[in-house]
Nucleic acid binder design. Sequence first.
DNA 1: TTTCAGTCTGTGAACGTTCCCAGAGAGGTG
DNA 2: CACCTCTCTGGGAACGTTCACAGACTGAAA
Lengths: 336, 336
Amino acid sequence: MGSMAKRPTIHDVAAVAGVSRGTVSRVLNDDRYVSPAAHAAVKRAIAETGYVLNRAARSLVTQRTGSVVMVLSEPQERLFEDPTFSVLLRTATRRLAERDVSLVMMIAGNDGDRDRVIRYLRGGHADGVFLVSTHAGDKLVDALLDIPVAAVAQGAVIGRENVIPYAAADDREGARQMTRYLVERGHRRIATITGPLDTPGGALRLEGFADILGRKAGRRLIEHGDYTQLGGESAMARLLERSPDIDAVFVASDLMAAGALSALRAAGRRVPEDVAVGGFDDSAVALTTHPPLTTVRQPLERVAEETVRLLLALIDGAEHLEPVILPTTLVVRESA
Amino acid sequence: MGSMAKRPTIHDVAAVAGVSRGTVSRVLNDDRYVSPAAHAAVKRAIAETGYVLNRAARSLVTQRTGSVVMVLSEPQERLFEDPTFSVLLRTATRRLAERDVSLVMMIAGNDGDRDRVIRYLRGGHADGVFLVSTHAGDKLVDALLDIPVAAVAQGAVIGRENVIPYAAADDREGARQMTRYLVERGHRRIATITGPLDTPGGALRLEGFADILGRKAGRRLIEHGDYTQLGGESAMARLLERSPDIDAVFVASDLMAAGALSALRAAGRRVPEDVAVGGFDDSAVALTTHPPLTTVRQPLERVAEETVRLLLALIDGAEHLEPVILPTTLVVRESA
DNA sequence: TTTCAGTCTGTGAACGTTCCCAGAGAGGTG
DNA sequence: CACCTCTCTGGGAACGTTCACAGACTGAAA
């Protein structure tokens, strides 16, 4: 299959172009001080020989790998049930590829996984880390700080906001938008189902909710979920049992909202007539549910792009990087 | 951040252990002919120095990279809307990590992307390729055959079944199971919405459908979708317009089935009373829809595992690898 | 005792780059 | 004309491994 001729090296290119190794290397790296003639000759020789750079050789001397790791830290298996990841992964891969940086996926679901990630990074196998959905107190994060590797996160790492740069949607304001909307529509008994409080999405969306409702948002109207559909369903059931007079609920993710809809249907409540339901994310599920979800759109592609930008800047030696917070928008459909 | 001491090399380990480079290398590679004493000393020295292997250096001499690429070839942006990918990605990452092989993601959505993938592989940046959802006639596949790299696919690559090993669910038999079930339930006007016919899932599920219905499955009862929810919706609408007397429909993916449900609801048909709907995949959406989907479960994790197994075998030099076909099961819920 | 096979160890040479330094030539300035 | 600066080029050395080979030692067989 294919010719088995040895792959051409920089030496071969140099020979064909009639210049030295050094000059070829300079062309390859866009260095200064290459005459137009030499430049052209090298370009021609590269095309002629079909030369491609050997990254291992380059890495060996530069101590750079040209790759970054995306670490998905999730205790449960839910990982991909959440469409958020997909968007992040796709966007990040694309953007990085444009800079010829490759994206390695690593899953840090349990401690064994986490150790592997740490070993990998300590081994200098990547220039940077892109943390996704990191929970407060994750030991991985602390280990990271001891390793000379660029690290950024999608969403703040609670407790490490000042040391790990991040990009995120404006979770708090997004929650305010939805809560305000529910209030304006005349709802009076508004509950919420939060995400895990050790994630920024869990904590900040609850804060935004409380910002609008103040003390009216008592304990009895708050229930916690884990971002899964099933978690949303049982949280809604608990909520209904405890406070049957609820007339609206703000659910911190669309997937959980889908679960909440099932619970409401099971309880014989109509949506939105009896209970209005607001989601968060504007993910694909929001259109699948019946009725379609009124939700808060977060600009995930842009979040991913900004996170990548931060990471590349960090790898290039940037020092103090400010977090990037992107605005959300309310998307009104039929559930509220 | 962290000590800036140079990373220990194999030389440092050798010095601490009181042996030579060669011996350390032999321990690292589980080579024969290392005395128990030397082995222990090296292990101790590795722990003491905190040594980690430099992969770039190893790659340079072994011509192996320790990484494989998962190529998602999708013309559209739909990519991740389909939960199939998520499962494949997660499972493959895990399994490969167990062998210390890292997974690089590449997206081949357009020709520019495809060229980048080819350049990457031609550059020897990976030991193997894991093709996902490849369409017949993809130029990437032909390019691949000219590059000395191990390649496997999830799902047959139509037209290249004999040259690219693959693992897949038994799409044809799965479609037969569903169609048979619909027939047994007494439905007489059974239609189908297929996937793209240049993918194995599209072609084989239609074949399975036709296996059961024979000539009764006329052109008028077949409509084509693109695996997206919206595609399923419009395909269903076309079907209803053309053949209003349909009493069941087999949809080649759950996501398209969700779309079909919307179209049926819009047309005022009850599911399953007026029209029964059968899906395929048993993905998360199957539970979200209303009513929940009766569908065909394909063992995606196992498919991913088997594909990885094939890939690793190929990298290790295996020659003739037979495709692996895994059984599907019918999952009865409420939509049919 | 000699010979041989098997085990174990050390070392030079390579892998394909980049980095750095030395030096040649061109052009400008005092 | 001497000197300097700037541009451009070539080539030695290094990056951290693995590989192949040579050689030392051991124990068993002839």
